[in-house]
Nucleic acid binder design. Sequence first.
DNA 1: CTAGTTGCAAAGAGTTTGCATGGCG
DNA 2: CGCCATGCAAACTCTTTGCAACTAG
Lengths: 130, 130
Amino acid sequence: MGKYQTEQRIILMDFFEKNPDHNFTARQIYENIKDSGISISAVYRNLSDLAISEKIQRVAGKNSREIFYRYTGSEKCMGCLHLSCIKCGKTFHMSKEAAEKISETISEYSNFSINVIKSVIYGVCSDCDE
Amino acid sequence: MGKYQTEQRIILMDFFEKNPDHNFTARQIYENIKDSGISISAVYRNLSDLAISEKIQRVAGKNSREIFYRYTGSEKCMGCLHLSCIKCGKTFHMSKEAAEKISETISEYSNFSINVIKSVIYGVCSDCDE
DNA sequence: CTAGTTGCAAAGAGTTTGCATGGCG
DNA sequence: CGCCATGCAAACTCTTTGCAACTAG
């Protein structure tokens, strides 16, 4: 998946690197980069490849037709757990240390090894919590 | 949302109560209960209502067109965190106690209050972990 | 040069909606 | 009896695919 480094692929990855941890629909991504010269089919095809190689995650939105793509392949995301605020939609990073502690707690209570990249904790951030 | 207790609504809720915490597509749900007498539009309309009232959660699948519905409104799900195995797809419950401990860890490291119902931890269960 | 990738337009799927009918309270 | 929900079919959108042209290595 991704043997050639095409111009379109670079455009898409550039966009993701500039906007890590943010939810976009396929169309939103396309709207953002179409002027650089990429077709919507190329967007979809690359999105599929990236999802398979787990560099992006798919997230279901509130409306049933809404699917978001979130780039989690960047360096600074490695090993840290993500917190997503239900109200404002912002994403926060937890430190690697915190992630490890949670991972420990989980295995303490059950036989389960967490995949930190795929997991997102939903809740309310301090700004939105009154 | 849901002022009348229609036959179709009962059929759908029955199905969910019998299959809590399991991911189904809209079509799979329909296939399972259509013989009881319900149309696919009624399924979709009720699914929307249930998602709004947060009795079910939407989850994005591996293929971009796949959206799963998971019933989390049952009594025994209240207060416990869910673990979902990436390999076998099974869902496991964590005790309320464990959920609280994780909630504590999170607020210890950041100002964030977890919504346990909406959050799902992904990883690998003991059966699939070799 | 060869295999992988793109663009376009058409096909395919899943979801939503308008309207008349039927049912709950 | 009045409002809400259902069923059906048509309409919509989003996503995928076939094919010819193009391009990275």
